[in-house]
Simulated scan of single mutants.
Amino acid sequence: MTAPTGEIYRIDWVPGTDVLHGTCHCGAEHTAEDPVAMWEWMLGHPEGHTS
């Protein structure tokens, strides 16, 4: 296990939809219906953080 980095990733479900709204520790935001795609976007920092 690695030590915590202090980075906070937040994923919220948009009620009444199948949409997830993610906010990265850098402040970038992204929406997706697929949880795997959301985590790939989050953990792919900094690539993919333009959308």
Rank of each mutant, 00 (worst) to 15 (best):
1 M>A: 13
2 T>R: 05
2 T>L: 11
3 A>C: 12
4 P>M: 09
5 T>Y: 02
5 T>M: 02
6 G>W: 03
6 G>P: 00
6 G>T: 11
6 G>L: 06
7 E>H: 11
7 E>S: 04
8 I>S: 04
8 I>H: 08
8 I>E: 02
8 I>D: 09
10 R>V: 08
10 R>W: 05
11 I>K: 10
11 I>S: 05
12 D>T: 03
13 W>G: 06
15 P>H: 12
16 G>E: 13
16 G>F: 15
16 G>Q: 14
17 T>H: 06
17 T>N: 02
18 D>F: 13
18 D>H: 11
18 D>N: 14
19 V>C: 14
19 V>Q: 15
19 V>I: 15
20 L>E: 00
20 L>Q: 08
21 H>K: 14
21 H>Q: 14
22 G>S: 11
22 G>Q: 13
22 G>N: 10
22 G>W: 14
22 G>H: 14
23 T>Q: 07
23 T>D: 00
23 T>G: 07
24 C>V: 13
24 C>A: 13
25 H>G: 05
25 H>L: 03
25 H>R: 12
25 H>E: 10
26 C>D: 07
26 C>I: 03
26 C>V: 02
26 C>E: 02
27 G>H: 05
27 G>S: 06
27 G>F: 04
27 G>I: 05
28 A>Q: 00
28 A>R: 01
29 E>M: 14
29 E>Y: 04
30 H>K: 07
31 T>S: 13
33 E>K: 15
33 E>D: 15
33 E>N: 15
35 P>T: 09
35 P>D: 00
35 P>H: 06
36 V>M: 10
36 V>S: 06
36 V>Q: 11
37 A>D: 08
38 M>W: 09
39 W>M: 08
40 E>D: 13
41 W>R: 10
42 M>P: 00
43 L>H: 03
43 L>M: 09
44 G>K: 04
44 G>F: 01
45 H>W: 09
45 H>E: 08
45 H>T: 09
46 P>V: 06
46 P>E: 01
46 P>T: 00
47 E>R: 11
47 E>T: 14
47 E>C: 09
48 G>L: 04
48 G>Q: 00
49 H>L: 02
49 H>A: 02
49 H>I: 09
49 H>N: 01
50 T>L: 11
50 T>R: 12
51 S>V: 08
51 S>A: 03
51 S>Q: 04
